[in-house]
Each structure stands twice: as C-alpha cells, then as structure tokens.
C-alpha cells in the first residue's frame, strides 16, 4: 500500500466497517418493521388482547420491565466503553465491556426463563396469532441479542489482548452501534408487546 493510499484510508470521515454496520442495521430495521407491522394489524384488529380463547395468560410485565432496565443499563455501559477507549482509559474500558457482556447474558437468561414459564402456562407458538406473533417477534429480537453478545465476546477478547487503543477502536465502535440498535429496539418491543 502506498503512502497516498494509507493517507486516504486514515482520513476517511467514516470507516467502511461503520458504514457497513449502518447499512446492516438499516436492513435489520426493515425486517423488524415488517414484523411490528404484522403485530399492529393483529393487536389493533382484536378488541380482546390476549384473545379470550387463551384464558388468563398474562405476560410477565414486571420481570421483563426489570430486564428492560438491565438492557438499558448495558447500552449505557457500552457507550462508556467507547468513551473510555477514546480517552485511553484501558482498565475502565475493559470493565465497562465486561459489565455490558454480563448484562447481555443476564437479559438472555431471564428472557429464557420467562419463556419456559409461559410455555408451561400453555402459551406456545401454536397458540393462535397471539402466541405466533409473540414468539416470532420476541424470539427474533432474542436471536439478535445472542448475536450481539457473541460479537461482544470477540470484542472483549480482542480488547483484553490489547488490540484496541485510542487511535484504533473501530471494532468497539461498530459493536456499540449494533448493541445500541438491539437496546433501542427492545424498548419499542417491550412497550408494544408487553404494555400496549
């Protein structure tokens, strides 16, 4: 690579990786928009939600609300991990990444245990449109959180190996973008599916 090429790459206003993640998030948004659109049709089309045929099944609003706070807090710690690496505060950066990872895993574990309870109560994927749209929408998000946790594991490992610095932290920044998407999306899904 010539000197000029290196200069061009270093002076790019936005990195290719960041632009790629933004486009990926655009596609992901459209996927969830389709699912939320379907949910809106079913939710607003039914006066009784959950439908009366499902009996007295109630979604765990309180536990999921606490879980929502965990995820929101993980978004905050992810944001601070980028701030710390920008300021070359490596120890704090490692700590905030580890906190984010822990909160992400905790979210998945709590979500999984809630699902097991709901299945025991009789709410399955075959429980009409209510069960179908609930598991597809929330399950799709849970898969994305799982993907984000796996991505974060790689970022954390690379960070512990000293691959990131205040000069080079694109990996952390792109991971933060994806994590923020997952957190913001969950807030919308929680309000729509659990509270509305």
């Amino acid at each position: 690579m010539t000197h000029t090429e290196v200069d061009i790459i270093q002076n790019r206003p936005i990195s290719n990786a960041k632009l790629g993640v933004l486009v990926l998030l655009g596609a992901e948004t459209m996927l969830f928009v389709g699912l939320i659109g379907a949910f809106l049709v079913f939710r607003m089309g039914n006066v009784n939600w959950p439908p009366l045929s499902l009996g007295d099944i109630q979604l765990p609003q309180l536990v999921t609300g606490i879980n929502t706070f965990l995820l929101l807090f993980s978004g905050l710690s992810m944001f601070f991990s980028v701030r710390y690496i920008q300021q070359d505060k490596i120890q704090q950066h490692h700590l905030s990444l580890a906190i984010t990872w822990f909160l992400g895993v905790a979210f998945l574990v709590i979500q999984g245990s809630e699902w097991i309870q709901l299945i025991r109560q009789g709410l399955t994927l075959q429980s009409g449109i209510y069960g179908g749209i609930f598991y597809v929408l929330i399950g799709c998000h849970a898969l994305h959180v799982l993907g984000a946790v796996m991505w974060l594991s790689i970022v954390l490992a690379k960070s512990l190996l000293g691959r990131f610095s205040s000069q080079e932290y694109t990996g952390v920044e792109t991971c933060m973008l994806y994590w923020s998407f997952v957190v913001a999306l969950w807030l919308i899904l929680y309000i729509l599916v659990y509270l509305y």
Partner: peptide, 28 residues
C-alpha cells in the same frame, strides 16, 4: 378495528424507509 390496524401498520411501514435512509444519510 382491523381496518384501523391495517391503516396504522401501513403508515408505520411506509414511514420507515424514509427514516432508515434519513438516519444513514444523516450519519454519513
């Protein structure tokens, strides 16, 4: 209710491409 559901769903989905392109374009 079902018509209202369709209306809101269509409006929501119709607005989203503009939002997505706006956010990506705005960010760049």
């Amino acid at each position: 209710p079902i018509a209202r559901g369709f209306n809101w769903s269509v409006l929501f989905m119709m607005a989203m491409p503009f939002t997505v392109f706006g956010v990506i374009g705005g960010s760049v």
